[in-house]
Computed example of a mutant assay.
Amino acid sequence: MADVARRVGVSRALVSLVFREQPGASDETRRRVLAAADELGYRPDSAARLLARGRSRTIGVVLAVRQTFQADLVESIYPEAERLGYDVLLSAGAPGRDERKAVEALLSHRCEALVLLGPLAGTARLDELGRRSAVAVVGRAARGARVDSVRTAEAKGVNQVVGHLVGLGHRRIAHVDGGRGPGAAERRQAYRTAMRRHGLADAIHVVPGAHNEEAGSAAGRLLLAGDHLPTAVFAGNDRCAMGLMDTLDRAGVAVPGEVSVVGYDDSHLSHLSHIDLTTVRQDAVRMAEHAVRFVVERLDDAALAPREAVLDPKLVVRGTSAAPSAPH
């Protein structure tokens, strides 16, 4: 800023007024200051200015780098944060970089609040983070921890899936488990409950899995090796469903002609015409908005009791589910 002031021949205080868009400088002076700053490559350090006031106005977001639905959430976090006057800093968990490292990196960059997308941390760890910062968890319950949470009513979504498949005439409906993934335990339990409700307790078949394509492929190979293929499979999420469909396709099993497949998330990839996946839509926009508002409100009032927003899902029927090819 001092360099710009010397170039223009004005005081540093006047340059500061220009960059803060405050009155006190003529239009001509503003033009000269901005031109000089451009020539010198100077940009105001807004982060330093905020830190000098004891604030960073930055929300840190932790995500899993390969989860497409989490990318959809991030897309919606940005506009809501900007609307409320906050910047967003991302930190990803990836092979060789666990969730704890991703969180600590954001805290070391002085993020005022954290939004954790589908975290794997236990209640004690989440509670510890909630006492260090304003925290919102997205995609799972966080009861017992001093954090806010936003999630989908998993049981409602799974009930819609099983009801849809039973209505088409399916009876042998398998579920590829999501492992430790966000919402997986709730979806697994809801699947078992829904199958019993429809009188299909004897047909319950849970295949071990995870929320990725590799797990879907492995589940597909396991099902193909069995004595009888199910007529329908409810996958733990869309990525798992895509891996499953790829394996079935390579084995010459038609989807949905021989096996219907349903996913969960309604991530942007499921909309593609060559995938056309029947799936459960989670409202990424509303989930992101709730999470951002929760942490901003907690920054204003740290004494707020933990809050939970539970949003309704919606089954989206596309081309991967149909009536079974023959009575079963």
Rank of each mutant, 00 (worst) to 15 (best):
R140E: 10
L117I: 06
V61D: 03
V8Q: 10
T193A: 15
G144M: 08
V262I: 09
P327N: 01
V317H: 01
L129K: 04
A105E: 14
A113W: 03
L17R: 15
G139F: 11
A145Q: 05
D127P: 05
E28I: 13
V62R: 06
E82Y: 05
K156Y: 00
A102V: 01
L126E: 04
Y191S: 07
G144S: 05
R187K: 10
A284I: 03
P44D: 08
L90E: 12
L222P: 00
T123Y: 00
V310M: 08
S26Y: 07
S76H: 15
K314G: 05
D72C: 07
P230S: 02
K101P: 00
A210V: 05
Y42T: 06
D266P: 04
L107C: 09
L40V: 09
L299I: 10
F19V: 12
L114T: 04
R143D: 14
A155L: 06
L51W: 15
L315F: 05
P208Q: 05
G9T: 09
E297A: 14
R172G: 04
G178S: 13
G181V: 02
R239F: 04
E21D: 15
T247V: 11
Y264K: 11
L51A: 10
A113P: 00
L90P: 10
G96Q: 09
V261L: 09
V135A: 03
G178M: 11
V206L: 09
A190L: 08
K101M: 09
R143F: 06
G163T: 01
R132V: 11
Q189K: 07
P230C: 04
R32Q: 14
V158L: 08
D227F: 00
A134G: 01
R281M: 11
L165Y: 02
V295I: 12
G54K: 11
Y86D: 03
N237P: 12
S149H: 08
V158E: 00
V253H: 02
V137F: 07
V233E: 03
I59R: 00
D301F: 05
I59K: 00
A136W: 05
A71I: 12
L14K: 11
E258M: 11
D227P: 04
A254L: 14
L51K: 15
A218R: 15
L40M: 12
A13H: 11
D238W: 06
Q67C: 02
A145N: 02
D283R: 07
D246N: 13
A142L: 05
P95Y: 13
I59D: 01
H328C: 03
V18C: 03
L73Q: 05
